[in-house]
């Protein structure tokens, strides 16, 4: 359940940004959470509700973009899609994979008032 830590971090980043830009309320928070980032989205949403209470982000809508997993397959010599970290290359079955996408974990933007 590291989602609580991540949710607290989302609230802190959103509040800091809102204050630096003269906002007094945050209505939306746009996140990028890759499909290989090891984050349970429902847990993150639940924790965000708890962590944002009494903050500028209380009641804010959480919009989450989920980039697909991608990896560089060494035997194939090209980028392939990957749905799980333990999965083999969908083309050749090799596990010699270097993850190149899908592990994003960031706040992209916020809407303030």
């Amino acid at each position: 359940m590291h989602e609580m830590s991540l949710a607290e971090s989302v609230v802190q980043i959103a509040e800091d940004t809102a204050r630096q830009n003269g906002g007094s309320r945050i209505s939306s928070v746009f996140l990028e959470v890759g499909r290989l980032a090891g984050v349970e989205i429902e847990a993150l949403r639940f924790c965000f509700d708890a962590a944002s209470r009494s903050s500028l982000a209380e009641g804010a809508e959480l919009v989450i973009e989920r980039p697909d997993g991608r990896a560089w397959c060494m035997p194939c010599g090209e980028t392939v899609s990957l749905s799980g970290l333990a999965d083999p290359c969908p083309r050749c079955g090799s596990h010699q994979l270097q993850v190149t996408g899908g592990n994003e974990l960031k706040v992209r933007e916020i809407a303030i008032h």
């Binding site: 971090s9 989302v10 906002g23 939306s28 996140l31 974990l105 960031k106 933007e109 916020i110 809407a111």
Partner: peptide
């Protein structure tokens, strides 16, 4: 640096953040 640009409804401003959730850690 945090860039600011306004679009969407007049009441709300979108602020670009692009900050990693684990950046502080």
């Amino acid at each position: 640096r945090i860039g600011v640009h306004a679009h969407g409804t007049p009441a709300a401003r979108i602020v670009q953040v692009e900050r990693d959730l684990l950046a502080a850690n």
